[in-house]
Amino acid sequence: MTTINAAHPHAAGAGGKSHVVADSITMLRRNLLHMIRYPGLSVFTIMGPVVILLLFVFVFGGTLGAGLPGVDPAGGRAAYLAYVMPGILAITIAGGAGGTATTVSMDMTEGITARFRTMAISRASVLAGHVLGNTIQTLIAVALVLGVGLAIGFRPNAGAIEWLAAAGLMVLTAYAISWLAVAMGIQAKSVETASNLPLLLVILPMLGSGFVPTDSMPAWMQGFADYQPFTPIIETIRGLLLGTPLGWNAALAVGWCVVIAVAGYLWSMVIYERKSVR
């Protein structure tokens, strides 16, 4: 990978591939400007998880917490806050996909995207701009949601290394989910479909160990819940922040992220190339 080649300002065509990084950064700037100018979607991706967090902790939390194994019913709400926080963080990351798919889908219908296709810039950088922009946005959302969690009494016992590792995994997850969301956005025939498709991702943490332990589920569902991507991701964050046993979860989580990112990237590139304009 190379950086901007200032000596050949006009040689863009000769080396379209050599400008991938520079072009991706240019596209990232464009997407960040969009987010700052029109923060509507961004606000929604942050408010959603906060509402779910407050709902689950203060409305359902007392009862759900009392049902967790080895918890004194009197401290149910606090115990449930600790239990549900990793799941809420996963939902925050998954929720970002909705915004990305919508933005990408709208962008594909814009004339500017047609213009990008007639320019000697790498296909990947147009999409990478969206992915990086969304990853940053999601991480901001994660930080704010975590802030709310800490404010209402979430007390992780992690050291600096564990915090760093948890942050790293969340960055990786956000990045992987973003590629998937970009693919969904290009694939969707309409903006409406694009905004609904990623809702499936938001359900996933609930069908895993995000909100209740999987062994409280019926056997057939438990099979799915234990092996779907979000469970090892949630278990890893839980293990790092709260000291629950990690087992193979960390390796599984990273593996899933790599698989999702690569699949999302390939899917995006193929359909972006195939879908010609108008």
Binding site: A12, G16, R37, E110, G111, I112, A114, R115, T118
Partner: peptide, 16 residues
Amino acid sequence: RAQIGLTGQFSAVDNL
């Protein structure tokens, strides 16, 4: 692509 420019009938500008 390196040598052309296209201005289409639908404006290829970033509206945001």
